[in-house]
Amino acid sequence: MNIKRYFAAFVILFVLLNIALVMNLCIGSVNIPLSEFYKMANRLPADETYQEIITQIRAPRALAAIILGGAIALSGYLLQTFFHNPIATPFTLGVSSGAKLIVALVMVASLGYKSLLNSWTMIFAAFVGSMLCMGFVILMSKAIRQMAMLIVSGVMIGYICSAVTDFVVTFADDADIVNLHNWSQGSFSGINWENVRVMAIIVVITTICVFLLSKPISAYQMGEAYAQNMGLNVQQFRVIIVILSSILSACVTAFAGPVSFVGIAVPHLVKGLLKTAQPILMIPACFLGGSSFCLFCDLLARTVFAPTELSISTVTAILGAPVVIYILLRRKKEKVG
């Protein structure tokens, strides 16, 4: 029965998220025993060092992974819907690289004026970058009917933007640039509570908006012509989807840099778990899945080669790229068969 399956899927996602969260909070250069964690969770007196580590370092980072992970998965899902293409994501279409470029430029330009560089400015810069690249990709999609070529051109845009970013980062010589370099590789490190508050506000509001759009999204899945006949204002809907997915990916890029493959892998895996493409289920499931996926990846990034930290994209690519290859192989088989 379908309802049972959906229910089971959500329970699994929820349990995964909680396990990942507890692991992220407890495991690290200092391992915190579960007994201590239990005390803290129940507001009982616990070791103060542990408390410090969790509340000041690990909790904001884990929360960021949850919020941003959900955001990446969701923005990937939106773009896949928009382009009717299972491997469209902010990363593959070059949108997050565009955001990265603008953020890097803003960062470098404002090195002298630290006060300007708050979370909101970063998000705004990333949003501008996303929209610029998105606009470019949409223009290209008008000219390029073939979806594979669209992805290739998106990847090219991504390379160009990354190259320019590297150029900017290399020549902007300042001590702060070390941070910038880490960030441009993609990382959840160095996130504070203030950042978490800002990203939570933006991502939660945007996600609610996306969820409210689940009915029009289901119409759009039937193709534009049928969607239009169902009474959907397709033009307006497309604009809204682009803006929402850009806000989500901008938020991710602003705080964690570009994060690859989560946007493809998570919606695909979640779809396999739910065995449905109904947006009303996919949207929350993608968010939960993205959160858990990013928590696990961040845990690996932090711990595998500790104390050296891997960039988040390194881990997500290793785990996510095989999923993409699988999708491509399966699609090919379906066309032949």
Binding site: K215, S218, M222, G223, A225, M230, K275, I280
Partner: peptide
């Protein structure tokens, strides 16, 4: 309408496809 445009909905049963016809009648969440 019934159009010549090809429809490739993912993981939708025929019943789901037929049910999309109810779109103009259902509420906010369809």
């Amino acid at each position: 309408v019934v159009l010549t445009e090809r429809v490739n909905p993912e993981m939708m049963s025929c019943q789901d496809v037929v049910a999309t016809g109810r779109y103009p009648y259902t509420g906010t969440f369809g």
